[in-house]
Design a protein around this nucleic acid. Structure first.
Lengths: 355, 355
DNA sequence: ATGAAAGCGCTAACAC
DNA sequence: GTGTTAGCGCTTTCAT
């Protein structure tokens, strides 16, 4: 008769137990799929009915405190308002939800201080695992987590230490597809707007560019590094590139946002794409098919990245295996109208023929 | 000497207390900003130093179980991969993070079953409040939460009951801006691709269209309702609209995605925008300035929506006031190149004058 | 100003 | 198969 007065909003196992005339641990066993088989069918039914009637919902905080498993996972990404991430997040959330997990999603804006803060909040909430899209090439966060044996999966970017599995796209192949396509169109003087080199994506795509150019016996020195994967950085880098290398007939940008910036820069210089300069992007972001002109780019399996990352993380959490399997997904060339044969003037001077 | 053997990974208040030679409740008081003032400065310093040294981090699950406050809030939106939401989510997360809260973000794809499931997961985790962008005009979720007195804020869409505060944009004004602009350009036969009418946004924008047309003494019967706020639905609706009303010279779409679909439909019909038909969108989604042609649209303060929603929710949570203040934000017309004077042929027949 | 004690709601040995 | 018991780590009266 002690706690019956406090019929507050929360229905607990004890309330259900009283209603079903069983011990509260029996209720717990019924509610937990893992221990459900221990209970007689008739008793289980009675408990379930009472729970239903009282509107019982298990308190994940209490359960988590006891089991040391919160069924919450953390997701840290640099920019949620970049077109790259939403489809990935969507897929992650779908897989997690199917498995009774939820995601705490945080942005860092590539700011290490913010990253540290959100990570602290996540750890305080006893997250069971972490998916991060912010790994730098030698990432202290990655190292820290991996050393503590905490389940961690990197997406999109990877660090160099191999301390945790990652889901990435084969950017070497991706830039190869781009360069092959441009060369096939007849381009020889091809420039590259590179992404930040401390990010694996930026570095890998630059390397892919260089290797592919070398494969074709072409010079790969027309490279400008954009300080960030943004439209504005792309615009500035494009101007710099064209100032230094006015003769290039095609520009391979390290991602779509950079390519958008290049579109602006070209327009500002009175250059037409693809007549004067062919452009390519990377990621096949939503809407780039509607740009002027529609952007030739490389499609990466965003959804698949999310699915694989979530699956891999859940495997690590539930099985506690230290599998360091990396997943490398293949990109696909999407040809649109921002690429064409090199401009006539250059064709003339470079190959001394017309038509 | 009982529990000293289990030097497991987690450092607790007891560990810190032992190291600082105080009672563990003192540690708790030091760590909690609210009770910190009760402790002598020197003792506090000693505790803090010990905590630092041992790497103590408070366990939010345990604290939440005790205080019945999880410092987690739920965010439910229909589509994370719609360009509307990421900036809102970014702002929400920023405000929450500043206040020591984190967000569990879930997508529903407008599927009520999914909504129910994610909501159950959130409730199990004892979320302190909820921000939802999925409210239908008579929403059971909204009603349920409001009745239980749980802090809830609606964004973007609102229900009709006024059961909870909402942060919305003044869509009547927004469509008014659009219609005024088109009329000023000389359009009279203006069509409208409406959004789903069970959503407050769809309904409000249609009403805004009708009222504005009436204000100008124009017929507002060229309306087709798209079954969803998607590009494909926009494409189909645009075809239907033009089949039924071939003479319209301008189309006001209820959002940008619908306008994109219209772009496709116009292209399929061999019509040029804005020469044959002027187009307008709504939301000023990222990239619509780079479309062919750049889209005239209405900019809504996405970031502000997120900020206001998070602030309002935190107010409700911390002060437990039942303020039902609605926030209505003002939209802004963004004129680009998808709108122009009506096509010559129509000008001729409609107003019997040229130039 | 600090210590003592109780308990948030749950799970998981351990009994019987 | 079900009841008993003991915490998970924390906050918060109540003493002192």
């Amino acid at each position: 008769m002690k706690r019956s007065k406090r019929r507050s909003q929360h229905v607990t196992v004890r309330d259900v137990a009283r209603a079903a005339r069983v011990h509260f641990s029996t209720v717990s066993r019924v509610m937990n799929p893992h221990t459900r088989s221990q209970i007689t069918e008739s008793v289980a039914k009675r408990v379930l009915k009472a729970a239903e009637r009282l509107g019982y919902r298990t308190n994940a905080l209490a359960a988590g405190l006891r089991t040391r498993r919160s069924r919450v996972i953390g997701v840290i990404i640099p920019y949620i308002d970049s077109p790259l991430y939403p489809p990935i997040l969507l897929a992650i959330e779908e897989i997690l939800s199917e498995n009774g997990y939820v995601a705490i999603i945080s942005n860092t804006q590539n700011d290490p201080a913010r990253e540290e803060r959100v990570l602290a909040e996540m750890m305080a909430r006893q997250i069971d695992g972490l998916i991060i899209g912010t790994a730098t090439r030698h990432d202290p966060v990655v190292k820290g987590w991996a050393q503590r044996g905490a389940p961690l999966v990197m997406i999109n970017r990877t660090d160099q230490t191999g301390a945790a599995p990652s889901i990435i796209v084969d950017d070497l192949v991706g830039l190869g597809l781009i360069v092959d396509h441009l060369v096939e169109l007849g381009h020889k003087a091809i420039g590259h707007i590179a992404g930040p080199q401390q990010l694996s994506t930026g570095a890998a795509r630059s390397e892919g560019f260089r290797k592919a150019m070398a494969r074709h016996g072409l010079q790969a020195d027309a490279i400008t590094i954009a300080e960030d994967f943004t439209r504005e950085a792309g615009r500035r880098a494009c101007h710099a590139l064209l100032n230094q290398f006015p003769d290039i007939t095609a520009i391979a940008a390290a991602n779509d946002l950079l390519a958008l910036g290049c579109y602006e820069a070209l327009q500002e210089r009175g250059l037409s794409c693809p007549k004067d300069v062919s452009m390519t992007g990377y990621n096949d972001s939503v809407f780039v098919d509607l740009l002027r002109p529609p952007l030739t780019t490389v499609r990466i399996p965003q959804r698949e990245i999310g699915i694989q990352a979530a699956r891999l993380l859940l495997e690590k959490i539930e099985e506690r295996r230290a599998l360091a399997r990396d997943v490398v997904l293949r990109p696909q060339l999407i040809i649109r109208q921002s690429t064409a044969t090199p401009r006539a003037s250059v064709l003339l001077s470079n190959s001394s023929q017309r038509f």
